[in-house]
Structures are given as C-alpha cells and as structure tokens.
C-alpha cells in the first residue's frame, strides 16, 4: 500500500521534523533531560495556564473570566501531576474547581455582574497602563533571577510520595498548622454567615 499520498505534505512534514531537530540541537545543552512526552505535556499545561489567565483578566464578561479561571486551575492541576503529586492535583480539582469557582459564580450572579454589569466597560487608560506595568514588572524582576540562579540549584527528578506520609505528617509533625487552619476555616464560615444574614441596609441620609 502506498503510504506517501502527497509529496507536498511529505515535504512539509519533513521540513517541520527537521526544524524541530534543529531547535532541539540548538537548545539541547540548556534544557533538562526529560522524555519528549513530558515536554509535550508541559507545553499543553502552560498553554492552558496562559490562555486561561489571559481570559480571566481580559474578558469583559465575568462568567467568561471565571471559565478562564477554571482553565488555569486545570493547567495547574496538570503541573501537579507532572511534579508527581497526584493527591494535590485531585485536591486542586476538588477545592478550586469544585468549591471556589462555585463561590465566584455565586458572587457574579448575586451582584448581577454577568454580561452587562459594571465590568463590561473597559477600564480607564491609566489603569490599563498600570496593569501592563504590573504584568511586566514581576516577569522582568524575578524572571532573570529564576533563570540565572535556578539553574545552580541541585535539581532532582520528582518522585511520588505515598499519600499515607502526608496523613502522618498532618497528625504528627504539622499538627499545629492543621488545627490552626481548621480554626481559620471555622471563623471564616462563621463570619461569612454573620455578615450575610445580618446585612447592612443603606443608612438614612445616604445619597442613593
């Protein structure tokens, strides 16, 4: 059976493969050794993070911004999988995608902010300028630091930690933070219920 259907497609595929090989040869000494599938997965997750992040901060419709947030959370969950911590990836899905996004959705819907709310207008030009500045500043300050000094750290390949170790750590070594976080959660829930049920009506003499 004839495999090579179209010489043009063959030529294009060959060119692309050659280009990838050329890039790999060029960057090879600087890149960590990993299976190509790891690079593919990393590229996929980074793409999800970038697209989701851009959608989350640029979308004029807040529901779309929340969907961008979900995409970013999924990308970060994939990163946790790449770092050999599947328990954290599961928790990311459960807590962030399952709980926090629902809270954000409640906030959007309770303030009538979905598509024709206050967010649908563009922010003033000065705010856009400051936003661009604050996007560039962390990248420009910490990016070179990470690239220059991160390479000097002795890096090892992540290995899987048994989930039982995490549970033992929670009950022996890190029992104080564990109890503290439960108190924080309790106080936050009580405060939220108190604020939401008591309510604050508009005061007399306020201009509406």
């Amino acid at each position: 059976m004839e495999q090579h259907v179209n010489p043009i497609i063959d030529a294009v595929l060959g060119y692309i493969a050659g280009f990838i090989q050329y890039l790999a040869g060029l960057l090879g000494p600087y890149l960590p050794e990993a299976h190509w599938a790891a690079y593919l997965a990393f590229a996929l997750y980074v793409t999800a993070i970038i697209l989701g992040g851009l959608l989350a901060i640029l979308a004029r419709n807040l529901v779309r911004a929340m969907m961008g947030l979900v995409l970013t959370f999924l990308g970060v969950a994939g990163m946790y999988l790449l770092l050999a911590s599947p328990f954290l990836a599961f928790m990311q899905l459960l807590i962030y995608v399952g709980a926090i996004c629902v809270l954000v959705f409640f906030a959007i819907m309770l303030t009538h902010n979905s598509s024709e709310g206050e967010e649908s207008k563009l922010p003033p030009l000065s705010a856009l300028g400051y936003g661009l500045l604050s996007l560039i500043a962390p990248l420009a300050v910490a990016g070179p630091l990470i690239i220059l000094h991160g390479s000097k750290l002795k890096s090892k390949v992540p290995v899987d930690t048994p989930t039982g170790d995490l549970g033992k750590g929670l009950l022996t070594e890190y029992v104080l933070p564990f109890e503290l976080i439960s108190i924080v959660l309790l106080v936050a829930m009580a405060g939220a219920v108190f604020l939401a049920f008591r309510g604050f009506a508009p005061l007399k003499g306020d201009k509406e």
């Binding site: 980074v46 993070i49 970038i50 992040g53 851009l54 989350a56 901060i57 970013t72 970060v76 922010p123 705010a127 856009l128 400051y130 936003g131 661009l132 604050s134 996007l135 560039i136 500043a137 962390p138 990248l139 910490a142 990016g143 990470i146």
Partner: peptide, 13 residues
C-alpha cells in the same frame, strides 16, 4: 511567576 504576573495585572485593571 506567570500566574503571579497575570493575577497582579488583573487585580489592578
């Protein structure tokens, strides 16, 4: 770092 930069820019705009 990219996530931090996105969050900061969104917080301001």
């Amino acid at each position: 770092l990219l996530l931090l930069a996105f969050g900061l820019a969104g917080l301001i705009t």
